[in-house]
């Protein structure tokens, strides 16, 4: 249990994030990650699993996901059909139990990372239904009468986009970390990790206009890290001169190739209006 997460070469983990991950790792409690979209919540689990050499099991939660599906599902229809066909398998109920992600994670001999992605998408009672299972890392299979207990308690990472509030009882059992939006210094570190040979001037100018865009009041959807990275890639592909980036900014306000940054029609309109006002003022 002496493993510690220190971030990886592909992922810049701030110190508070590292502490939170290590606390969850040591105390074997779930870690709840919240933050603006695109700040790398899901990627964190992947990187933790890579850094600590643990297998990653991902459970994507949707609005229709039930807690039971994470444990197991009993496939009654197949069994009914097999009984019609006189299949031998029908005698053992175990053949018709489909293991869920939690079961899969519990069975592993080696400790794994279990990512429960976007838990807030599911029904409001979903987290409550998983309380016991996550707390004690065991559950009971009614059909076969066996209790499945985790061989090695997995490191559970849960992400939430804040669409629904999570129940207090659930929160009490977790460690919590809010990934705040990275500042310019962290951001250029992140960029360097992704594009090691990017021109520094381009980064500086692009970042400046990126944070300017984020600061525009009334934006419906602020561009996030992943959008910035896409945008930079485009800028590099098009081989746009860093200086024009700045110049155009002053005159036009809309950065070139803004489609990668601004994904909302209303936001584009907003920018066009602002650009118009800026031009009028200059004249």
């Amino acid at each position: 249990m002496s493993q510690k997460f220190e971030g990886t070469e592909n992922y810049i983990a701030t110190e508070d994030l590292r502490v939170a991950v290590n606390a969850a790792l040591t105390l074997q409690r779930p870690l709840l990650i919240k933050g603006e979209p695109g700040t790398g919540k899901t990627v964190l689990a992947e990187e933790v699993s890579k850094a600590l050499d643990m297998e990653l099991i991902t459970w994507h939660v949707k609005s229709t996901t039930k807690a039971q599906q994470g444990l197991y599902e009993y496939d009654a229809i197949t069994r009914l059909r097999d009984s019609q066909l006189g299949d031998e398998r029908v005698k053992d109920v175990k053949n018709y139990i489909n293991k869920g992600k939690l079961w899969e994670a519990f069975e592993k001999k080696k400790r794994v990372v279990l990512l429960i992605d976007e838990i807030d998408k599911a029904d409001i009672e979903f987290p409550n239904d998983l309380l016991q299972e996550l707390d004690r890392m065991e559950f009971y299979v009614y059909e076969t009468g066996e209790t499945i207990k985790a061989v090695e308690r997995p490191l559970v990472i849960i992400t939430s986009n804040n669409e629904k509030e999570l129940p207090d009882a659930f929160l009490r059992r977790c460690f919590f970390h809010y990934i705040s939006f990275p500042d310019a210094a962290t951001m250029s570190q992140i960029i360097n990790v992704h594009y090691p040979d990017i021109k520094e001037r381009l980064v500086r100018n692009a970042l400046a206009s990126f944070y300017e865009v984020r600061d525009v009041p009334g934006l419906k959807k602020k561009p996030s890290t992943s959008e910035l990275l896409d945008w930079l890639k485009l800028l590099m592909n098009e081989d746009i001169d860093p200086e024009t980036l700045r110049e155009q900014d002053a005159g036009k306000l809309i950065p070139p190739l803004h489609g990668a940054l601004i994904k909302n029609e209303q936001d584009v309109h907003l920018f066009e209006r602002l650009a118009f006002l800026a031009r009028r003022e200059r004249n």
Binding site: D16, A23, A24, T26, L27, C174, F175, F176
Partner: peptide, 29 residues
């Protein structure tokens, strides 16, 4: 759980680390 974490030496003895740890353990929103 904060105390348990301290007991298990999750962090060293830097006050910043203690701040991060207590934040992760105590604040959930």
């Amino acid at each position: 759980s904060l105390l348990e974490a301290l007991d298990n030496d999750v962090i060293g003895n830097q006050v910043e680390e203690f701040y991060y740890l207590s934040k992760a353990a105590l604040v959930k929103d």
